[in-house]
Amino acid sequence: MKQKIIILVCAAIFAAGVIGSAWVLLSPKKNTVNVISDGKTVRTIDLSTAADEVFTVEYGGKTNTVEIKDGRIRVQSAECPDKTCVHMGWLESSAMPIVCLPNRLVIEFADADGGVDAISE
């Protein structure tokens, strides 16, 4: 009996993960992008009007080089061990921000949780 409950819990977690992933992947793109370093928004960019540009964001002596091109944004290079943020490529989903954990950098579409922040403040 207990074993069945455990198996059901596993199945429920898996189903929740699949549904959540689908929801995240299906969220549409937005135009405004926030670049957040160590919890503070350092730049807000409107991708629909932004000119192509390359800029760097620094945290604790390490920098991430961010590239804006043809209305898209990505991390071009990073001084961190894993380079996960670089491999994530262009920012595609409002629900999936680009994150560099070692350098505490986040690039996300602004509307995604701007509303929640506005309410909580």
């Binding site: 977690i13 993960g17 992933s21 957040i36 160590d38 629900a95 994150v99 954990l101 996300e108």
Partner: peptide, 23 residues
Amino acid sequence: AALLVTKTPALLMYYPFLLVSGC
């Protein structure tokens, strides 16, 4: 831990993928 360190609630969006891969 990542939420506490980065103070970025948007990170939660990874959680569903972590659940699937973790399972």
